[in-house]
């Protein structure tokens, strides 16, 4: 646990954090072990009160927070949902988290919300649209946001630029930072039969304000090629740890989140994943 006197909560420490799950509340309050900050999905804390908000208030007195949106649909063809933007600004306003992030994806179309992160092609047109939306988001929440690289399962024939160039271009246009999900890099590279290390080499690492690590499932496509699926329902696999080690050796220590959202394990399992990240971060600091 962080001591507020030593670490102000207005920035994430270059240490492990975890995605907060209510079933871990007591364990975290008693002894968070290697975990020094927490992340929440913004949409789960947009109710008016009750236990979720009470737990969040209690935790926010002891931990730095990162708010991670999953419902803004920044890559959507339609306009951003202004009501949702207001709810987000309200949450970020009272919680005052150290970081706010969202996805390079869309989830709402024609006023329906699909509860999944859907892909978009990388073109001048989509770059303009995403940049315009990020300008609106940063204006509404009054701070810089981080944009996260997606897990890709397929490609768009119309795509004209590399994802790393697309992300760098958006950051240049909007002043946003980037959230590098190393598991997503591995999943996408495997699915697209490209080299994940080349992706890291091409990524603008100086813009990375946070890193995500999580587990994935393994499947195969119609031709028997591996098809990895980002599930956040298992331990981080060794090849992703190796890619993370490489990333940290290049970028230096960065706040690193363990994401585990489905089949959530007991706290000690999650703490052990955080400990593994801590060892890699400490090596970089030494």
């Amino acid at each position: 646990m962080l001591d507020a006197a030593q670490h102000p909560f207005d920035r994430l420490p270059d240490c492990p954090g975890v995605g907060y799950k209510p079933q871990h509340f007591t364990a975290i309050m008693e002894n968070a072990g290697p975990v020094e900050w927490l992340e929440i999905h913004a949409e789960n804390y947009m109710g008016d009160g009750g236990r979720p908000i009470a737990q969040l208030r209690a935790l926010a007195e002891r931990f730095a927070f990162s708010v991670h949106g999953v419902g803004l649909s920044i890559g959507g063809e339609g306009p951003l949902d202004q009501d949702h933007l207001k709810r987000l600004a309200h949450l970020v306003g009272w919680l005052n988290p150290a970081r706010f992030s969202e996805h390079l994806a869309w989830s709402t179309h024609d006023s329906h919300f699909f509860n999944d992160l859907l892909p978009l092609p990388y073109t001048e047109e989509t770059l303009n649209r995403v940049a315009r939306h990020i300008d609106q988001v940063q204006e509404a929440v009054g701070r810089q946001m981080l944009l996260e690289n997606p897990s890709n399962y397929l490609a768009f024939a119309e795509t004209t630029m590399a994802e790393t160039d697309f992300l760098a271009g958006i950051a240049r246009r909007t002043g946003c930072g980037l959230l590098l999900d190393v598991n997503n890099v591995f999943v996408s590279a495997t699915n697209q039969q490209t080299d994940p290390y080349s992706y890291i080499d091409a990524f603008p690492l100086h813009l990375v304000g946070e890193i995500h690590l999580g587990g994935h499932d393994e499947d195969a496509d119609d031709t028997g090629q591996p098809l990895l699926i980002d599930s956040h329902g298992a331990e981080v696999v060794d090849p992703v740890w190796a890619l993370y080690d490489y990333t940290i050796s290049k970028a230096g220590a960065r706040p690193t989140l363990i994401e585990w959202d489905t089949d959530v394990p007991e706290w000690p399992v999650l703490a052990e994943e955080a400990r593994r990240a801590a060892r890699i971060l400490e090596k970089a600091a030494a």
Binding site: D116, A155, F156, A157, N191, D222, L227, I229
Partner: peptide, 26 residues
């Protein structure tokens, strides 16, 4: 058409990831 695998063939089963995610998560 226009959603593809790395070889440029139709995405096929790859697209089902989204179909499954939406139905399962909801």
């Amino acid at each position: 058409a226009g959603l593809t695998d790395p070889e440029g063939r139709n995405a096929g089963k790859r697209f089902n990831v989204y179909r499954n995610n939406v139905v399962l998560s909801l």
